[in-house]
């Protein structure tokens, strides 16, 4: 324990926080941490935060981010963290260290002996540093969870291999195909080609937002691998804006057959396996 954080100092600081509540809250409400909130919400959050921190100081938990004391301010922390979960750069994160300035100023304005002022400074600084660490922890765990959830979701989305007919498979590719997802899509398609003795595999890219060189390379590699396993590949669903961009990028799909839509590709696939679709004469009769 740091010298000077005896219980009497804590009580002194807690008392100060209680007596100067409205001044502190008013000062805090004008900091960037709270100005993005509606005034009523800001006032409420300031009050909650202050009460919580006072409780932490009273119970001596001001140096421990995991201590139960901070639990009382969790809802406010969650609100702060949620607001900061915006852009990827995170540069607009409300930084709670700005709360320290006004707090210490008000504390020092009191007419107190020097050693008490110093000890109190320390307690107040510690509690705000702890608050900051707790906030960072919440943000980090929230960010990681989101990324993991999204990654799992996208990986799953990219892998369904659909059997359209005996010997005809289709794989609808969705979103952005980074290397992991492209790899998984290729692997599951090749597996199914073997398992189902498929003769045609349709790669449908209607749901792909951009085809860059990496995606194009995946498509080409998949087509070559499929051919080695005895299946012909058809790429369908190349939308106009993507076709135009691919041409300018210089991508040549070479010998890989392409069709505008999945339906066109299916028609072609049926021809490859020697089937024709014709009107049912009895029904049309």
């Amino acid at each position: 324990m740091t010298a000077g954080t005896g219980q009497n100092i804590r009580d002194r600081v807690a008392q100060f926080l209680k007596e100067n509540r409205s001044d502190i809250e008013r000062a805090w409400a004008t900091t960037p941490v709270f100005t993005a909130r509606r005034p009523a919400d800001a006032a409420e959050e300031c009050a909650e935060l202050l009460t919580g921190l006072r409780h932490v100081i009273e119970t001596g938990g001001e140096e421990d981010p995991s201590a139960g004391g901070l639990a009382t301010v969790r809802p406010v922390l969650a609100s702060l963290a949620a607001r900061s979960a915006g852009g990827p750069s995170g540069s607009d994160r409300p930084d709670v260290t700005v709360l320290k300035g006004p707090l210490l100023r008000l504390w020092r304005e009191q007419d107190l002996p020097e050693d008490i002022v110093h000890s109190g400074d320390l307690v107040l600084s510690n509690v705000l540093n702890t608050l900051r660490i707790a906030l960072l922890e919440i943000e980090l765990s929230a960010g990681t969870e989101t990324i993991l959830a999204q990654r799992a979701q996208l990986t799953e989305l990219s892998t369904p291999v659909i059997k359209l007919w005996d010997g005809i498979l289709a794989i609808p590719l969705i979103g952005t195909l980074d290397s992991t997802r492209g790899q998984i899509a290729t692997e599951s398609l090749l597996e199914q080609i073997v398992a189902q003795q498929a003769r045609v595999a349709i790669l449908d890219i209607t749901g792909v937002t951009a085809v860059d060189t990496l995606v194009a390379q995946h498509l080409l590699k998949t087509a070559v691998a499929a051919r080695l396993m005895g299946a012909e590949c058809i790429i369908s669903g190349i939308r106009p804006q993507i076709a135009q961009t691919m041409v300018q990028l210089g991508i040549d799909l070479g010998e890989v057959a392409t069709r505008a839509t999945l339906a066109d590709a299916f028609g072609q696939a049926l021809r490859v396996i020697g089937l024709t679709v014709c009107p049912d004469e009895r029904g049309a009769g």
Partner: peptide, 17 residues
């Protein structure tokens, strides 16, 4: 436009990689 967006995003993807 959608075409311009696609070109821009594709170029960005290449250079970022």
């Amino acid at each position: 436009s959608l075409v311009e967006q696609t070109k821009l995003v594709t170029a960005a993807s290449e250079l970022a990689r």
